[in-house]
Amino acid sequence: MPITWSDDVQSVFAGDLVAAAAYLTPAGGAIVIPVSPIGLVDRAAGSVAMTTSLAFPAKLRRLLQEPRVAMAYHTREHGFATDPRLVLAQGTAVVPEEPSPEQLARVNEQAGKFFGELPTGRFWNWALREYLEYRLIVDISLSRVVTWPDAAAKGTPELFGAALPEAPAPQEPPAKGTGPRVDTAKFARRARRMAHQTIAYRGGDGYPVIAPVRVTGHSERGLHLDVTPGLLPPGGRRAGFAAHAFRPQAAGVSNRIGTGWLEVTDGAAVWAPHTAGGFSSPPSKTFHLLGNGLLSKHLIRKLRRDGTLDELARLRAGVAS
């Protein structure tokens, strides 16, 4: 039977412009990225959804291999939700072979609500073709929803669905060591400029957990994080980090994303970045759309030439059957 949740949680699912999504890595860590869920929620089915582009096959391959995912609705900025609570949703991703016409119609309707109407005409139809057509709607059948009264996850949490698991045990350190492998000072400086910062790790029952944090400084050990006491498990483990900011209609996006090693001792949390990436887009919605369209066009053509699109189609068909 699908899980149920409160009206307050429903308003957050339906209204946040940008959320954080996390999926697991083969090594037992997690990657967390900002996404625009555009209010895709089916309360009767106990599910939420996100869209993903075929232009970025690594995420899609991983979801097909390991479908346990999490979504953290934590921003409340420039969207329609006003309730201040943080909502963590955990569940199983269902990647379709192809989106249904009904799903695509729903996505187009919701995208217009959150992003505004798309430009039309011969040029824009060409520029946005791959951006719009090569997308999949990934439904997430929820097992658990946890909500806290505010965005920093302070106060008594409310639980819907499966009981919370025991805290995960510390993980074995990576063979190459736990220390930073990228420029920590640069990573910290860029991350601190962004309004929203999260960290994700593999929870005690195998689902990703996403927690809000704030970068307060850095040292040779990594980024020093301020986090609500008790929110992160003690010990060391692989963890992903994402800092992001955005403007109305999700224009002017900036993010800084990485994977690394999280160490929590005596209430202090330090995250050492091992990989780093990110980008900033122009604040103009027109340039943002044009950039997304042309990048998608380039990547889709490349993936078609090297056979990746055919490979993904076979993988999706195998999972669907």
Rank of each mutant, 00 (worst) to 15 (best):
V138E: 01
P26A: 08
A162Q: 09
V107G: 03
A167T: 12
F279K: 15
L303P: 04
T51R: 05
E98I: 07
S280D: 13
F123D: 12
F80G: 09
F115R: 09
W148H: 12
M194Q: 09
L294A: 07
A211C: 11
P233T: 07
N125W: 13
I3N: 06
K285E: 13
P57D: 11
W5D: 01
N125Y: 14
D83R: 12
R316Q: 10
Y201F: 14
P67A: 02
I210H: 01
L299F: 11
T82A: 13
I210N: 01
I137V: 10
E98N: 08
L294W: 05
G177A: 05
P37K: 07
T51D: 01
H74W: 15
W126C: 08
R237A: 07
A162Y: 03
K186E: 02
F13P: 00
G252H: 04
P119Y: 00
E158R: 15
A70V: 06
A211F: 07
V209C: 10
K176D: 11
G230I: 01
A55E: 10
H224M: 14
A151T: 11
T275M: 03
V227C: 14
R135H: 12
T75E: 12
D42S: 12
V227S: 09
E166R: 13
S280R: 15
K297V: 03
E311R: 10
A151R: 15
G235C: 02
L142Y: 02
L142K: 03
P67H: 01
A93M: 05
A317T: 11
R237W: 02
V94G: 00
R122D: 12
G28V: 08
G79S: 03
G46S: 06
A93N: 06
A81Q: 08
P149L: 15
D42R: 13
V95K: 11
L295N: 09
